[in-house]
């Protein structure tokens, strides 16, 4: 099958690559760019682990082909922190014990970061519903909801 030349900006860096149409964005990020922070759980859109941002919107990278994002800007979990400094949401996750195995965490972080404005106006039940597209097998969600509330309230966590 014919391949396509694409230019994609990922975390501020422009990449030129040649891809077959069937290559999923999730595999492009992980296998071509070696950005393995984006996790793949179900590979059919139901778990949210693979969530990245496409031109600022939270999207499933397993439900997109790399060829579709030619000319677009992608942000992955690797683009969240600035150097050794954790992003406030990451610090809040750490502070609120919002992760155990961490498999789901990159997806939660990228989904939450794309919705912070809306989340800041929500009560706890609404936050839970807004996060329902991401599945966590470990935490029971309590810590994740607390981390969101701490972040939108601007609380500082010591990152312990």
């Amino acid at each position: 099958m014919t391949t396509h030349d694409i230019t994609v900006e990922v975390n501020g860096v422009a990449y030129d690559r040649t891809v077959p149409p069937r290559l999923l964005l999730s595999d492009f990020l992980r296998h071509e760019l070696h950005l393995t922070g984006t996790h793949v759980g179900c590979e059919h859109g139901v778990c949210g682990a693979c969530t990245v941002q496409l031109d600022g919107d939270g999207v499933r990278s397993c439900l997109l082909f790399a060829v579709q994002v030619d000319g677009c800007a992608i942000k992955t979990v690797e683009g969240l922190a600035s150097g050794p400094e954790l992003h406030p949401l990451q610090a809040a996750f750490s502070g609120a014990h919002a992760l155990q195995c961490g498999f789901c965490t990159p997806g939660f972080l990228m989904a939450i970061d794309s919705m912070l404005d809306e989340l800041s106006a929500m009560n706890e039940a609404e936050i839970r519903e807004a996060l329902s597209g991401n599945i966590c097998r470990c935490t029971g969600y309590q810590g994740i909801v607390e981390a969101v509330q701490a972040t939108v309230a601007g609380d500082k966590h010591d990152g312990r």
């Binding site: 939270g58 439900l63 989904a111 597209g133």
Partner: peptide, 9 residues
């Protein structure tokens, strides 16, 4: 309809 990340696309 699904979740916000589904509706973005």
């Amino acid at each position: 309809v699904g979740h916000p990340q589904i509706r973005s696309r």
